[in-house]
Amino acid sequence: MTDNTANVLKMRKKRRMREMSFQTLITVITIIFVLLAFIPIFLMLFLSLKSQSQFYANLWALPIPPRWQNYNAAWNQLIRNMVNSVVTVSVGTLLIVSLAAMSGYVFARLEFPLKNFLFMLMLALMMIPGVLTLTPSFKLIQRIGLKNTWWALWLPWASGGQVMGMYLCRTFISNQPASLFESARIDGATEFKAFFYIALPLAKPILATLVVMNMISLYGDFIWPLLVIESNTKQVISVAIQTYSSATGMTDYGAMIAGFVMATVPLVIMFSFSSRLYIEGITSGAVKA
């Protein structure tokens, strides 16, 4: 009896040990990956404080004294474009998310003639590569006189970006319990009220996911703004940072990399507010084919 108990205890202890070493192992591996993934970021922060001579002397040496002027230079050059980016990307994201939420709700909850046709009409766009329409889109923007205005960014962004969002919203909203909407309807809520007061609040995680996804992709878009925005006062950061980097790349590496850090800051701020909802949204299972 005692022998048996001892045996069980021993086995349990052994299993415990094995489990513990397993957990340690996977934690260590994950930590290694995390560290590797952060290398460019650390490198960026570290190098952004170096002077030109410190770059050539020893790259790994600590930037002593730190050269804060690098940030001054980057700020003076890029602040205008950063503000532009924040404004254009915010408006663009707002448009995308509101359009996606509305159409997602309609396709998830309502029945109406031509529903499937309209759904396929939107969904088929996911198959169409952006490069196919690059040339005609540019010419269209030119022809309707939107070139070099922010509308040239907002309208095509909203139009193209909403499709994926619509699809995700539809999946998410159709997983919401139908009984909620039925009881709302019985209580006399209009369709629009049901959308606004029931579907939207419940869809917060997926909306946050959409906000983050679209912000990141719009913020990083540099091909389209490069084509349609001409004046530097209206240009967005993703394009400006290239010009800035080739301008400073020969003479002042520190200032160039300080510019990289600065260009990252808006996304860091945005992410710190929305990361929890974003992760919740993506891991909710709505993101699948």
Partner: peptide
């Protein structure tokens, strides 16, 4: 998830 805040261009 955090590294994704660095914009693609950067």
């Amino acid at each position: 998830v955090m590294p994704m805040v660095v914009p693609g261009v950067v």
